[in-house]
Design a protein around this nucleic acid. Sequence first.
DNA 1: CAGATTTATGACAGCTACGTAACAGTTTGA
DNA 2: TCAAACTGTTACGTAGCTGTCATAAATCTG
Lengths: 236, 236
Amino acid sequence: MSLLSPRILIVEDEPAQVEILRFNMEQAGYEVSVETDGEKGVQAALEDPPDLILLDWMLPNLSGIEACRRLRKARKTREIPIILLTARSEERDKIRGLDIGADDYVTKPYSIKELIARVRSALRRPTTRSTDGKLVVGGIEVDIETHKARFDEKTIHLGPTEFRLLVVLMQNPERVFSRSQLLDQAWGITAELDTRTVDVHIGRLRRALARAGARNVVRTIRGFGYALESVSEAAR
Amino acid sequence: MSLLSPRILIVEDEPAQVEILRFNMEQAGYEVSVETDGEKGVQAALEDPPDLILLDWMLPNLSGIEACRRLRKARKTREIPIILLTARSEERDKIRGLDIGADDYVTKPYSIKELIARVRSALRRPTTRSTDGKLVVGGIEVDIETHKARFDEKTIHLGPTEFRLLVVLMQNPERVFSRSQLLDQAWGITAELDTRTVDVHIGRLRRALARAGARNVVRTIRGFGYALESVSEAAR
DNA sequence: CAGATTTATGACAGCTACGTAACAGTTTGA
DNA sequence: TCAAACTGTTACGTAGCTGTCATAAATCTG
């Protein structure tokens, strides 16, 4: 998910509806973009994938159902939660939407409160937003889902920041990260911290790893930053 | 279970709901039959026992709760998983639903995806209910049907909320849940509560577990949330 | 080698997230 | 009906995490 507020793409042709949706979603703290037909909606989603899509059922150019199907086919948009907006009179059709992979649907007239609740819930759903799975690099094992880190069967105890730092490094073993890049990825874009702070946390991470027996794992690249040693030179 | 696709009996009086449910269940690969009141529902289930029953709470003729009770009494239907569908305003009733022996409940408005997931999960349970209608993690045993929890032969006394919380955690041992996710799952997606409320209930759950001798079961992940420890790490 | 530059580390004050008790408002069950 | 049980919120103490700085150590440069 974006580090800032989640981005929602609204695909809806009726201007009045658009305004209602836009207003409420913005109120709820989301960043909103709008497309007014199915074709453009799919295009926009492919070019710059949002975190969630609110998709009207009846659309000019490309029906909601077809748009939905296309979004599910493309890799870039496959995982994005889609909530269908359908009118009551379109009852029968709307149902079919779920079959093609919408996450949820809401019937008009809908309660804004309910819609927001569903949006929030969809964004939180772990199944959609899964970077999970285990990361294994040079004897170190990190499981994001259970939030556990181990080396050689021994649990590595890490603070929140150290954990995020380790995850970032492990997602790209061997790759060199500058201090600013690490700040971006492990702290968030908005962090305005002294880059020296990274040093300190790298130090703390190293100590935690050492306590579990993993040494020489985080490599210092003088003048550039840090990287993870993917081949365990510690196992010597 | 039937040799062909599992058969689901839907007992629900609102036509719109029926259509949504029927369509989605058929899409998910189940064979569907429908009854529109409690009396007929029980009859149909007795005559030709389905593999699972989706039971609306508010029904003409015979309330969901009563239907549920009758289904649990009859030998032919005793083993059939029942999922209760309840509206949010009927919140407190739903709790009673679990007492009567429903396997699970879903509050409206529910996400279709979630409902399907629960149906699948209920059907996945082997027919040997004695072992698998129960959740067992690290010495703790929870029986959703009877609404009872035990640790080491000792009964754990839990309030309704604590019980739901424990069930959610036990359905995914080790997995880390954020406070919001726990609110979604144990309270419902429309719940608008302070996330700190979760802390308090976790505390209550811990105390209840401790009274039965189960310690260090609920792990705190600072900055993230909570998870269930599947292997007792009492050694600390 | 000396001086310059960069990194490692210990110390520390401030802060945040967590655990818990207390409480008032409800619900439940006898 | 009343007593007991349950719920969500608040307040407060505390452990542990965070970011900064000062200083030591390492590395580079000429």
